[in-house]
Design a protein around this nucleic acid. Sequence first.
RNA 1: GGUGGCGUAGCCAAGUGGUAAGGCAAGGGAUUGCAAAUCCCUCACCCCCGGUUCAAAUCCGGGCGCCACCUCCA
Length: 462
Amino acid sequence: MRLYDTLTRRVKEFAPREPGHVRMYNCGPTVYRRNHLGNYRAYATADLLRRTFELLGWRVTQVMNITDVGHLTEDDVADAAGEDKLQKEAQQRKLDPWQIAREVEGWFHEDRRTLRILDAHRYPRATEHIPEMIAMIEALVANGHAYAADGNVYFSVGSFPSYGALSGNTVEKLDAGASGRVEERSDKRSPHDFALWKHDPKHLMQWDSPWGRGFPGWHIECSAMSRKYLGDTFDLHTGGPDNIFPHHECEIAQSESVTGKPFVRHWVHCGWLTLGGEKMSKRAGKIHTVPELVEMGYAGADIRLFLLKQHYRAPLPFRLELLDEAREIRKRFNNFIRQERPPGPPDSEAADAARARFRAALEDDLNTSEALAVLHELMTTVNRTGAGADEAVRFLREADRVLAILDEPDEAPDAEIERLMAEREAARRSRDFKRSDAIRDELLKRGIELLDTPQGTRWRRK
RNA sequence: GGUGGCGUAGCCAAGUGGUAAGGCAAGGGAUUGCAAAUCCCUCACCCCCGGUUCAAAUCCGGGCGCCACCUCCA
């Protein structure tokens, strides 16, 4: 498998350190507000990786963090509460950041299931790993990589020479660049030092620590939790493009300063989901959520296909037109696997060739565009020749273990539908097309679409 | 100012040295009671200018345009 690595900035061979077993950590949601589609691009990419590894026959241990601490201030809670009726209620019942965090976490799982994103093996919450974080910070203070100042603890960036390797933002470059943009704090030895533990009485969530009451800095949770569940060194760490700097840069510095070992062997970051040429951001106010799109009539699988249809690293423009396109593509796939065909000669040649090309495409830095093209070409071939349809359908189902865009097979129609279909058939026989079309429209209203084929009338759910 | 990335048809997009995959949309035709589905056909001088090469969308140089990050937004 070949995969782009953000750290070395090139596509390189990916293989788990323990043969056949991938250990992967995905940066997960910050649960103070319902995630928008941009967030899900990162999770869908992680899901695609996990499913691809499993296709290759590897075992995967996947861990995704839930960031439920570190960012909630009164303002954030008030802000988050403004966008949803449930939240408004919570506001009226008295604000409780814990409650909001759990609620938003629930939405996250709801949305990701809609997008057919598989369950990770663990979803550790930051608030449940405070002791691990404190232990790690203590170790950093003890070995000189961090210092306490007035209830705060900072990581000393100067103590970690390769700081900046992931993002290109080395200390010198940062100095040369945004002078004045970095918050100057008198208790920091260098303006680039970042917080491991913070003291702020205004903050809603607080814990006791050797440095007094406070709360952990953002980056330390991932270092602590990934280490706990995946070890000092693990195979793959993923996230959105904004995680590269500062989050992942800081994680590397912290983790390696504690363990003295390489932190992560391969870094994967997806590209931005853009909206009108701009990134989709929690702060921009232009947000599309999964339920909002479902409400507009898109299936979760449509949205999923939209996210996976193009290469994970390229910027992806969000436009409803592209969701429509994804829906049309899915229709073609679903029609193909449900198509009634006269029995054709068995032929596994086309499907076997497609299987090999499909796998090769995914192994080539997750080239989903190519993988989808392979599937399209296979369908065209089978439609044309009439041979190998069963083998092709079987392979499509196989490929769908990675893509997860096909519909489930239709269940049996109920008696009422069967009765109407029979009535329509009788009407058609007597050439009463007005009546037969009326029945077809009636069924369509109930979500049942009829297809007249040479083998008789078929139906499917719309 | 620093850092990372992008520019291929109406739209999305693959392709990183050998003469432009695939899809969506659109148009024409076949089939159908009408539809649906399916099939056939049509649809690109790869942002610009130089250079290297027998050969460049692909490599090099220079432009132009666009996006993002620069301490807690996936």
